[in-house]
Design a protein around this nucleic acid. Structure first.
Lengths: 205, 205
DNA sequence: TGTACATCAGTGAACGCGCGTTCACTGATGTAC
DNA sequence: TGTACATCAGTGAACGCGCGTTCACTGATGTAC
């Protein structure tokens, strides 16, 4: 038999959730570098110290925001994968979906890659594994295109393919490089993935 | 007739150079996030305030360090390109050279992409244009593989190709993802670029 | 159900410190005669 | 060449402030009888 959550536990849970949403919203609007403990607690309607009863520190809170983002990205990609059966088309749509997600959620998406733990502290395991959503939709269509590949080869290729698409998207959205209009970027990315798949198919004999 | 540089101008130049090398060395050892004005000036053998007679601020100094890094990377890539005539092989060697440079100069290389100007300030034009070294060796071999491409198409493809290679390298060197041994990474990258070129050739008709 | 005590989540003022930048000063360099 | 004054690069102590984190306190919630 499970214990009913006490009033205390309910309140604590509510506070955690409020802080989480407040932090997420602040990152969404101002970006990770504009995130401040005082802003978060003000928005969440609690005192400054309250943050530290709910989360160990700000980094911990950011990891939880990044969890939400990874989940949201993961389910968008899953939905895209489920909608398209032909493997080539599916891979292309996954890449386009990634681009769309990055554009629609720029600051949240950037936070996934910009956030760094303090010197000497590792990203906790529970959060590391959540990054699997970035690759996991890619392996299956690749396997369809080349059934000979084993599990490990598929994993490696999925990873490279994600990394390549990610590179194109992230370079394009950086101030450091000349911005490309969204629509043009979309077709460049599509073309690029097409090349990649063609090469992949060509070497599958 | 040119004016001889005065003793004052020489000293100023020397100070700038000392600060530049000190900052570069600090970034090399501790990374961009570990860079402190006091460390730089101590290493350079001048007072704290001296930094501000030579450079506007720390960001300005970092831009100059990044210039050095881009130049170094640029000449390594140029050398690689000059050593190999066959276009396919040349593209592969450029990718491998990029990986090598990133591994051998991790913190300096990371600083190229991690550094951000303060809110509302743009990266100055003189520094933006220096990023061309990242792409410029790629266009020529691509043109050889497909002579029909016009200037703009070549530029776009070069950019995408760099971004993809960069993505693979940078994802692999991030703590957030499972590290791949250097040697394996090298062969994965090579394989990936081969796919890409095959696809590129296959669609060239 | 009611009372008395125990617990503990949440408070917010204060701490602490890191660190970029400034500025009144000085001593070396440059200029005029 | 030498002297007197002007300039200005470089000094380093002090400023200032942003901001994450702590901690003695309190009031609400839980427990025992």
């Amino acid at each position: 038999m499970k214990n009913e959550p006490t009033k205390r536990e309910l309140k604590k849970q509510e506070l955690k959730e409020n802080l989480l949403q407040a932090a997420r919203n602040r990152i969404k609007i101002n970006g990770l570098s504009g995130l401040r403990a005082r802003d978060i607690t003000t928005d969440a309607g609690c005192s400054l110290g309250g943050l530290y009863t709910a989360y160990d520190d700000i980094d911990n809170l950011v990891l939880h925001v990044n969890s939400i983002t990874l989940n949201a990205l993961g389910s968008e990609l899953k939905q895209i994968a489920d909608q398209e059966n032909r493997p080539v088309k599916r891979l292309i749509e996954l890449a386009r979906g990634y681009l769309k997600f990055a554009c629609d959620n720029r600051n949240l998406w950037s936070a996934l890659f910009d956030h760094r733990m303090p010197e000497g502290v590792d990203v906790p395991e529970w959060h590391l594994v959540e990054h699997a959503v970035l690759f996991e939709q890619i392996a299956m269509p690749l396997a369809e295109l080349n059934p000979k590949l084993n599990r490990e080869e598929l994993a490696t290729l999925s990873r490279s393919m994600f990394a390549a698409v990610h590179g194109i998207v992230s370079i394009s959205l950086q101030d450091r490089f000349i911005a490309v209009p969204r629509k043009e970027l979309d077709s460049q990315l599509t073309q690029f993935v097409e090349f990649l798949i063609k090469g992949f198919e060509a070497s599958n004999t």
